[in-house]
Deep mutational scan, measured.
Amino acid sequence: RNLTILSLPEDVLFHILKWLSVEDILAVRAVHSQLKDLVDNHASVWACASFQE
């Protein structure tokens, strides 16, 4: 069985995303439609995003 980041529970993905910069979140968003939906549909992803580079 192949395990990917998409195999992780949504709460784990949120925990990972909250540590990323805006640039990295946008890069993750571009990788897969499921990740794009996760980022686009949950404001909590952006609430913790680091807007300082």
Rank of each mutant, 00 (worst) to 15 (best):
V22E: 09
L20I: 04
C48P: 15
V28A: 02
T4W: 04
K18W: 07
C48R: 09
A27Y: 01
L35S: 02
L26Q: 11
R1T: 13
V39A: 09
S21V: 05
S44M: 10
V45H: 15
E23R: 14
K18G: 12
V12K: 00
L3I: 12
E53K: 14
S21C: 09
D24M: 05
S7R: 07
W19A: 08
P9I: 01
E23H: 08
S7M: 10
L38C: 15
W19P: 07
D11T: 13
D37V: 13
L8K: 03
F51Q: 11
I5P: 06
L38D: 03
E23M: 02
L6I: 04
H15F: 06
L38Y: 11
A43R: 10
F51T: 13
R1C: 10
D11Q: 13
L13Y: 09
A30V: 12
H42W: 07
K18S: 10
I25R: 06
W46R: 13
I16W: 02
L3N: 09
D11S: 14
A30W: 01
L38P: 00
E10I: 05
D24L: 03
L8F: 13
C48V: 08
V12R: 00
V22Y: 14
D40F: 01
F51Y: 10
C48L: 14
L3C: 09
I25G: 00
K36D: 01
V31L: 02
Q34H: 12
L38V: 15
E23L: 01
A47H: 09
N41Y: 05
D37S: 14
Q52Y: 08
L13V: 11
R29F: 05
D40S: 07
L6F: 08
I16C: 09
L38N: 01
P9R: 04
C48D: 11
K18Y: 06
D37F: 10
I25K: 05
D11I: 07
W19T: 10
V28I: 11
V12Y: 01
L3G: 07
V22T: 11
K18I: 07
V45N: 14
A27I: 09
L26D: 00
D24N: 00
K36Y: 01
H42K: 13
R1V: 07
V39S: 07
V39L: 09
A43L: 05
V28N: 00
V39P: 00
E53I: 06
D40Q: 06
E10F: 07
Q52C: 10
A49F: 04
L17F: 14
L26I: 13
S44D: 15
K36L: 05
D40E: 04
T4H: 13
K36G: 01
H32L: 03
N41Q: 15
W46T: 09
R29P: 03
V12A: 02
V12P: 03
I25A: 05
S50Q: 14
P9S: 04
S7L: 04
E23Y: 05
S7W: 04
L8R: 01
E23G: 07
A27G: 02
E53L: 06
D40L: 00
I25Y: 00
W19Y: 15
D37K: 15
A27N: 13
V28Q: 03
W46E: 13
I25L: 09
H32T: 06
H32N: 15
K18V: 07
Q52L: 13
S44R: 09
I16V: 10
V28H: 08
E53Q: 13
A49S: 14
T4G: 13
L26F: 07
L38F: 14
W19F: 15
N41V: 06
L20E: 00
K18M: 10
L13E: 02
L3T: 07
D24R: 02
E53D: 11
V22W: 12
L13C: 00
L38M: 13
R1F: 04
L20F: 00
V22Q: 10
R29Q: 02
R29Y: 03
N41P: 05
K18C: 05
R1G: 10
T4M: 03
F51E: 08
V22R: 11
D11W: 03
S50N: 08
Q52A: 14
R1Q: 07
N41L: 09
C48G: 15
A49Y: 09
K36A: 05
A47K: 11
A30L: 15
S50F: 04
I5A: 04
V22M: 11
S44F: 09
D24V: 02
Q52G: 11
S7D: 14
A47S: 12
L3M: 09
S50V: 05
S44L: 06
S50E: 12
L6N: 04
S7G: 09
A47I: 11
K18A: 09
S44E: 15
A43P: 13
S7E: 10
S33G: 06
H42M: 05
I16G: 03
V12S: 01
W19R: 11
K18Q: 12
E10S: 10
S33C: 01
I16R: 06
L8E: 04
P9E: 04
V28D: 01
L38S: 09
D37W: 07
L26A: 09
K18H: 12
S21Q: 07
S50C: 11
Q52W: 10
L35K: 02
L6G: 01
W46Q: 11
I25E: 02
A27W: 05
A43G: 08
T4D: 13
H15K: 15
V22N: 06
L20A: 04
N41R: 15
V45M: 12
A43K: 12
Q34R: 14
Q34I: 12
E10R: 13
P9K: 02
L3A: 03
L35Q: 01
H42N: 08
E10P: 08
A30T: 13
N41W: 03
I25C: 06
V31M: 04
V45L: 13
I5R: 01
E53A: 11
T4Q: 07
D37I: 15
L13W: 10
L6H: 04
K36M: 00
E53G: 13
F14H: 09
V31G: 04
A43M: 08
W19K: 15
F14P: 00
A49D: 15
V39R: 02
P9N: 01
T4E: 05
V39G: 04
S33Y: 02
S33R: 11
D37M: 15
A47Q: 11
V12I: 14
F14K: 15
S33L: 03
S33M: 03
H42R: 11
L3P: 09
A47Y: 07
V22I: 14
A47D: 13
D40H: 06
S50P: 12
Q52S: 11
I5M: 10
S44A: 12
A49P: 15
K18R: 11
K36N: 02
S33K: 09
E23N: 09
K18P: 03
A27V: 10
I5E: 04
D37A: 14
H32S: 14
C48A: 10
S21K: 10
L26V: 07
L35M: 08
S50K: 13
I16K: 00
V22G: 06
V39I: 13
L35H: 01
D37N: 13
S50W: 07
S21A: 12
C48K: 09
V12Q: 03
D11E: 11
V45P: 13
V31R: 03
V31P: 00
A27T: 14
L3K: 08
E23P: 10
S7Q: 10
K18D: 07
W46N: 12
L20P: 01
S44G: 14
R29T: 00
D40W: 00
A49I: 08
D37G: 13
Q52I: 12
I25V: 09
V45K: 15
F14C: 11
E10V: 06
A30G: 12
V39Q: 08
R29L: 01
